[in-house]
Every structure is written in C-alpha cells, then in structure tokens.
Amino acid sequence: MTASSGTDPLEVLVWRGKSDGRYQRFEVPRRDNQTVLDVVTFIQRECDPTVSYRFACRVGMCGSCGMTVNGRPRWTCRTHVSTVADDNQLQIGPLANLPLIKDLVVDMTRFFEKWQAAGGTFVPTKSRHDEIAMLRPSEPARVSADAAVECINCGVCFAACDTVRWNEDYLGPAALNRSWTLVNDTRDGGQAGRLQALAAHGGCTACHSHQSCAEHCPKGLNPTRSIAGLKRRTMAAYLKGEISR
C-alpha cells in the first residue's frame, strides 16, 4: 500500500449478515490513492476475516466488485476514497435489487435469468462451413450495437434502477441493453422470438426513461437509449403484425 497520508483513520460501516443484519463499524488507516476495494480488503485481512465480498481483477475490467457506497451503486475498485468519503466516513453495503447472500455478496441469478428472458442469447444462422459474415463497423446497425456492446454485466445499472425495484417483472436495463445489441446483429436468426419477449409485460415498454442506468454505468453506456431503440423496433413489429396481438 502507498504511504499513509497522516490523517485520521476512516470510519467505515460495512453491512453484515443477511437482510435482517446490521452495519458494523471498522477503523481503517487512511492512505493516498486508496480505493474503496482497498478498504474492504484491509478490513477482511486485518480486522475481521469473516467479511464476505466479491472482487477479481481490481482494475475495472471484470465488474465483480459492485457495491453500494454511501448510497450509490459503483465499482469499488474504481472508486477512490478521496472522492466519496465525506468527513472520513464510508458506508458500504451490497448492491440493491438483488437477493442478499451475506454481507456484501448478492445473488446474481435473477440478473442473468432476466438477461436470458430478454433474448440476450445469440442465435446463429451459419455453421463453420459457411463463409464468414462480413460486418462493416460503419453500418448503422453495427454502430448502434457497438455503442452498447461493452457491457460486462456488473449489475450497477440494475441496482440503480427504480423501475427494477418497483416492478419485479421488469427485465432491467442491462438485459435490455444486451438484447438491443443482438437486435442490431445482422448475423442473428432469432429476432422474431426476441422481439416477442421484449414486447411482453416487463419488457422494454416498462421503462420510464428515468436514466438512472446511464447516470451510473461505470462504462458510460446508455441503456435508456438502447431501450428507446427497442421500443421503436418492437412497436414497428407490433404494428406490422409480426408480434402476436
């Protein structure tokens, strides 16, 4: 770790237990260039080995370390303590809108089930014996897909979305955003089924364009824009009779 910045230690509240648990208070030495993940790691190694949390790459590539920090869902490895610790205080909890396993670890099953339900799976039309599909990055469909394709399923947008919290059937911004990339994939053969799923209850029509997802996405993606595109696409299909009425 880098040198101590010689200030008071951080007062860190960490959620312990399940949904009926409580915050536990720890003191963590303040350092220069310290991330919230550094803080949680320190707590687990030096204070209480029973603290459960998730991380992997530590450098903002994998999306595993999402937690609620002072009320906002974010990647803890890319959140510097200096930007969030008001008065040397930090409050760290699990991501919202997902079942809590223990402490800072949530069950991502529902997140990925909605991913599948939104038609987030590629449906191939060619085999290895066919010619490779030619995709030009400059084509409008590919531009739309590329703008949304960098999602790494971290769950931050899902945790930030009020509509996810209010409507348990809502597929959520990440799943719909991924589906949008496949709707724009000219190689995909599953559009009919996908559009049907998207036009159903809890699909893209449930989004109210709050844009909390775009506000919070650590990769700067814009699921609201993708969902708006899905609304246009599904409504066109509905009006043309391609989706069952």
């Binding site: 159903a200 699909g203 449930a206 609304k231 599904t234 409504m235 509905y238 009006l239 989706i243």
Partner: peptide, 9 residues
C-alpha cells in the same frame, strides 16, 4: 401482446 397494445394506446 397486451403490454404492446397498452403501450400503443
């Protein structure tokens, strides 16, 4: 699809 119909309406 009911959700689509309500959305359009």
């Amino acid at each position: 699809m009911k959700a689509a119909r309500l959305y359009v309406a």
